[in-house]
Design a protein around this nucleic acid. Structure first.
Lengths: 245, 245
DNA sequence: TATGACCGTATGTCCGGACAAACCTTGACA
DNA sequence: TGTCAAGGTTTGTCCGGACATACGGTCATA
């Protein structure tokens, strides 16, 4: 322990105390003030210093341990976890991926219509065949280079407008409507591009493309989105980190 | 609430009370005594009935909520979550995938040699260039149909023998040596098969193949395996489920 | 010098209580 | 009949305390 991390608490804020503490520590880890392996002060000292109870301090630390940002050992203390054990917190969207690599996302909305759900779409969305859904097809790009063609189906009452999608990602728009994805199932495969796809993506004929089909559910367990996407395999790959129980 | 779930606690056991409670509820969910959507009795009643304090009851329930087995809403109560919220537990291997679909895995070991690590392999395995590693190349099949060509690099001291690999999966062999993978990072992409690859996989020339590069670490943070794999896109796709924190 | 017992430290488990906030239902009123 | 306010229910947050258990180092002893 060099010097203890400074944490300002606001007891008038509606944000719970434990969350304020956790956010402060998380931020310190993220920007390097707390490097991997760094030992934190112990719970008792932390609680005393901040003027909170030990259970509250523990609640803050436990959340960070659950995210894999801290590791704790009895008799030893609490330290910052190695970077590779930290689990991602959000379902990533293409916009997030690009932003992380410092690339500029772009969107051209190719189609935005209401259609009756076909058999496949209805099954994926867990609705009756023929129910009206909004179909959105977008050409996504990074630094003005075409990257993917995305086809999404959404329940009519939560679908973003074409204007929204031109400036923001689909998941951001959904979050803005208070529908936060909680679970998603995705299937990743590959095939050869059709002539039309190759043209749109600026690829040679019969190039390999990555395919991804994804269904996303919110916390109520209802489907908020189903999409089938095609990515240029020459410019994009899926990068995931997995953890054991 | 039909009838309350019967839970027997053993206060002399070294197993914490909250864990005994959580296990009992988890088992009841697993075998269907508590179906999805079922409302549990409230925390206070549960604690009183079992003779434990409310914080202890909450700790049990919180663990199950974190695993996605229960959902709670203030003013409403605690319910068993929809089935799809239950998280998968393990890093999956090909053998696991095939077993889940009831297909018979097969392995032909094409190569099993000691080689000095090249620049790419050394970087991925976090070792010095030129260090001796074991290279293993296998042709994997399902129901006698070729499915993938897998190339793995392992630290020499933990590498399974060719005989082991003929009958069991790589991860099983590593687990058998006490090296359990804890984290893995994988990159999934696609490209066209080379002529030799197409021949091995029984695919037409210039077919699309899925590529996967994976690095796995154990609980100490040391690399236990690095592999680059090629899958027949016509017969295989990656199926993953994602969750938000 | 090597080894084992001891002890301080830090987290793990558990208890009891109090108030706040969100949710649903009910009933009164327009 | 429709709507809004009130109240009861349930989980969320926070406090204070107590003892248990695992870890690591130190010190005394063989």
């Amino acid at each position: 322990m060099a010097e203890p991390l400074r944490i300002d608490l606001d007891r008038t804020s509606p944000v719970p105390l434990y969350h304020q503490v956790a956010s402060a520590i998380e931020a310190a880890i993220a920007d390097g003030r707390l490097p991997p392996g760094q030992l934190l002060e112990n719970e008792i000292a932390l609680a005393a210093r901040l003027g909170i109870s030990r259970p509250t301090a523990r609640q803050a630390l436990r959340g960070l341990v659950d995210q894999g940002r801290l590791v704790r050992r009895r008799g030893v203390g609490t330290q910052v976890a190695p970077a590779r054990f930290r689990r991602p917190v959000e379902l990533t969207s293409l916009a997030d991926d690009l932003a992380r690599h410092g690339r500029e996302p772009g969107t051209r909305v190719l189609e935005h219509t209401v259609v009756p759900a076909g058999a496949l779409v209805a099954a994926a969305m867990e609705i009756d065949e023929g129910t009206s859904v909004v179909l959105i097809r977008r050409l996504r790009s990074a630094d003005d280079e075409p990257l993917a063609v995305m086809t999404n189906y959404l329940p009519a009452q939560i679908a973003p407008t074409a204007d929204e999608l031109a400036t923001t990602g689909l998941y951001d728009a959904l979050r803005h409507r208070g529908r936060r994805p909680r679970t998603a199932r995705q299937q990743i495969g590959a095939r050869l591009a059709t002539a039309a796809e190759a043209r749109m993506l600026d690829e040679p004929a019969r190039a390999a493309v990555l395919t991804m089909a994804r269904t996303a559910w919110d916390e109520d367990g209802s489907v908020i989105e189903y999409g089938t996407h095609i990515y240029r395999a020459s410019r994009y790959q899926f990068d995931t980190t997995l953890f054991t129980g």
